[in-house]
Every structure is written in C-alpha cells, then in structure tokens.
Simulated scan of single mutants.
Amino acid sequence: MNGRYRLEPNFTRTVPPGDNVERQVCAECGFVDYQNPKIVAGSVVTWRDRILLCRRAIEPRRGYWTLPAGYLELNETPEEGAWREANEEACTDIEIDRILAIYSIPRISQVQIIYRARLKRHHFAAGPESEAVALFDWADIPWGDLAFPSVGWALRHHRDVIGREDFAPSSNPQAGL
C-alpha cells in the first residue's frame, strides 16, 4: 500500500456481473482484465510473379520461412500493421491491394488478416526479425520449411486469385486448424 492506494491489483477469478465467462476481476474496484485474441496483420507480397518470404530470426520457428506479418500495435489499422511488418521484417515498402484472407486460429487465440500486396520497387533486405528475405517462384517455395500452416494457406489462396479483382477473402481451409 502507498497511502490509501494499493500498487498492485487484487485479482480473483470470477464471473463479472452481466457476463457469463469467468475472468480476472479486481476484488477491490471491480476492474475486469479481459483477455482477448491477438490480431495478426500481414501480406502475401509479390514482385512480378515471385513471392516475398522472410526466414525468421526469432522464435517461434526460427529459421523457417514466413510472410511478413505480426501483431497489430495499439491504435493501428490492419493495413498499417501489414505495411509496418513488411517494412520491419523485409526493409521494404509495399502497396496493399485488398484483403486476401482472414484466418481464425483459436488454439493460439489469433485472428490473422492477410492482404494481397506488391513491392513498390525491387528493394528488400533482412530486418532485425529476419535472417534472410528472398523472392520465390511458385515452384521454388520451401514448402517443407514454412513456419506456420497459415503461411501455406495464404500462399495457396493467393495463387487461386492471381489476376482476379472480384474475389471474396478466403478463410480457414476445410481440413481445419
């Protein structure tokens, strides 16, 4: 205690009034500490017919290939987040076209918003979270070394809509998570 004020909340697990889910609630003031899914924003970035992938320099899945993507920051739109992640992970500037897919991954409490995008110019480099960044022809994508299932989903969904402007965003494949 510091004077009359407690420095750390006194949380207990309970169902708050008007709710139906047990949550962390401060026993003193009633503050509810909601735990919500994380939003990931990223993009399938192309240069001509090639796809930009980043080899992860961080865990999880260090050394595996992924799309430029990551968690949204507070007060950031998904488009801003996708642009920022491409800039941070691949040191590049992209032009976002449209939403390619929205994936729900409840086992890790994520919703992923993936855009279709293009490099503004043929310039990229590994950022602090990437060991390497490269453009791949479809036949050369390192399928066995992709970091996450959703990377493969997005790449396949991207291939399905090449040249199309009239598609609805894809979602999780029927095979499940």
Rank of each mutant, 00 (worst) to 15 (best):
E131S: 12
A132D: 11
A154C: 13
L52M: 11
R48Q: 11
R50Y: 07
R56P: 14
A69S: 11
E80G: 15
I99E: 07
I162E: 09
N75S: 06
P60W: 04
R55T: 10
P149M: 03
N87Q: 11
R116F: 14
G70V: 10
A132R: 04
L53F: 11
R121C: 08
Y71W: 01
R107I: 01
P68N: 07
E76H: 06
G70D: 04
L135V: 07
D49C: 09
D160S: 05
V44D: 00
P142R: 07
T46L: 04
Q110S: 04
A90I: 13
N87D: 11
A134S: 09
I51V: 15
P60K: 07
H157G: 13
A117C: 12
L53I: 12
W83Q: 05
I105P: 00
R61G: 12
I141W: 03
G144L: 12
I96L: 11
W83R: 12
I51F: 14
E131P: 11
P149F: 03
A125M: 06
L74D: 13
A90Y: 13
R61L: 11
V133T: 11
L72T: 12
V161G: 01
A86C: 14
A69D: 07
N87P: 07
V161E: 00
P149K: 02
R107E: 06
I51Q: 02
D145E: 14
I102M: 05
G144A: 10
G152D: 03
H123I: 10
